[in-house]
């Protein structure tokens, strides 16, 4: 297994409050890895560190063998790491199609990239991906008018549009109608298998993450508590204690 993302002793504190302490984590190319832990255990902080939203205090973050912890957000995104947000973020006053097309990767840099016309194949791929997440009928609706769950699906489709190598998903099923959750799990799996996207997923819904992830990490109070297969992590007494005592 090729390690795509490797975190080594990553620490981050905010004004004395330690959000992450010496976190080790590795995600292999093509894997689906889950990240669980009670509220406030530092999962989203870790995502923000990986995506470059704040500098880390110590440790290293390597992506495809290269150190990325000093890069800025857009640079990291262009390397192939795309993250979604816990509070879903889409371009609210643009249509779904516009949201998708603007997320397409551009080969041309600088002025040529700015002045480029919108490629026909980008439009077709946008259409196909909207179809993939089940939003094809809403493609000309304004993103801000969609329901919360639909916005989550749109954000997922936008991330796929960017052709990421690694997708960081922050609670992909939160706010989604329970009857549709199995469909979301299915799409995440297909994105992983058919589009060769590696997934690192924060999820609170235990049924979803046990079902989806091949490996699991569990965090608590900013530290990495346990790692292993879903079965191992679920039966780890420390994990049970963290959940029962923590929330």
């Amino acid at each position: 297994m090729n390690p795509l993302l490797e975190l080594d002793g990553v620490s981050k504190s905010f004004g004395g409050v330690r959000a992450n302490t010496a976190i080790d984590l590795a995600v292999g190319e093509g894997e689906i890895v889950g990240l669980i832990g009670p509220n406030g255990s530092g999962k989203t902080t870790l995502f923000n560190s990986i995506a470059g939203h704040h500098p880390i205090d110590a440790g290293s973050i390597r992506f495809a063998g290269q150190e990325i912890s000093r890069l800025r957000v857009p640079q990291i995104a262009r390397r192939g790491i795309i993250r979604t947000f816990q509070q879903t973020r889409v371009y609210r006053r643009m249509t779904c199609m516009q949201n998708m097309v603007v997320s397409a990767p551009v080969a041309a840099q600088g002025i040529a990239g700015m002045l480029g016309r919108i490629a026909r194949e980008d439009g077709e791929r946008a259409q196909a991906l909207l179809d993939f997440v089940g939003l094809a009928a809403l493609r000309h609706s304004q993103a801000g008018d969609l329901s919360f769950g639909q916005q989550r699906l749109l954000e997922f489709a936008m991330a796929l549009m960017r052709r990421p190598r690694l997708l960081l998903l922050d609670e992909p099923t939160a706010g989604i109608n329970p009857t549709l959750i199995n469909g979301v799990i299915d799409r995440l799996r297909r994105a992983n298998a058919e589009l060769q996207v590696t997934l690192l997923v924060i999820e609170h819904n235990m049924r979803v993450i046990m079902n989806l992830a091949q490996r699991l990490y569990c965090m608590s109070h900013g530290e990495m508590l346990a790692a292993g297969t879903p079965g191992e992590v679920r039966n780890d007494p420390r994990v049970l204690a963290a959940y029962l005592g923590g929330s």
């Binding site: 923000n48 470059g52 939203h53 704040h54 500098p55 800025r72 957000v73």
Partner: peptide, 8 residues
Amino acid sequence: LARRRLYL
């Protein structure tokens, strides 16, 4: 702010 990358 940029030095601390606090733009979120």
